[in-house]
Amino acid sequence: MAMLQATDIHKKFGHLKVLKGVSLQVEKGEVIAIIGPSGSGKSTLLRCLNRLERIDQGCIEIESETMAKNGPKGWAVYSDEKDIERMRRKMGMVFQNFNLFPHKSVLENLMLAPVLVNGMGKTEAEKIARELLDKVGLSFKADNYPFELSGGQQQRVAIARALTLNPSIMCFDEPTSALDPELTGEVLHVMRDLALEHMTMIVVTHEIGFAREVANRVIFMDDGLIVEQGTAEEVLLNPTQERTKSFLGTVLMAR
């Protein structure tokens, strides 16, 4: 059973066509890396999958439940808000800029959703929060505020926070792009651990090394379309498309 199925997604911002018919199927336990030049629509695709953006056309299913599908007029029609919210809870999201809540301590950042959204008791929420902090190696920062943490630590907290609702899929939008190079390692390490636990993951990234090592499948996007996809070896080492080759050339050159 596919964890997530997106079919022929179209998305425009005004007149700008950002997604021009993208289809993506994600199986349980799969780790998918999405690469591609800036502006190719990678973030928009992720954001459409958990309805931070609404799609214009296409179909999205989460664990065989329909979130949106084309209506009789050809435009996407979304399901009931209540069902959508339930489906969205199955997806964790990690942003490029962490987006931690600066006025809440690390522990409070993690307890917020379980308490407010799932109605969990404070004691249990705190227990879960502490377990997750331990998992990302930041137990000792539980009572600190985000500004007291390094970028890498903040992103690890953000990952732990996304895990508090026990999602079936984790989406990462360039999780290391805002970090100093020496801090990317600790974040990638946490993500690698998640992959080893068979978490289903969709990762937009410029970390070619990480994609090669961790991803079951690599997708290359350009100009609102999936240009090429396959195993890391196929796409990263033996790309067939010219655009993939030239993109990889510039990315590898840049390091």
Binding site: F101, L116, V117
Partner: peptide, 14 residues
């Protein structure tokens, strides 16, 4: 207030 704060709250289900 940064748009990211709303989005983070949104994806957490608030």
């Amino acid at each position: 207030i940064d748009k990211g704060q709303y989005e983070a709250a949104d994806v957490l289900g608030l």
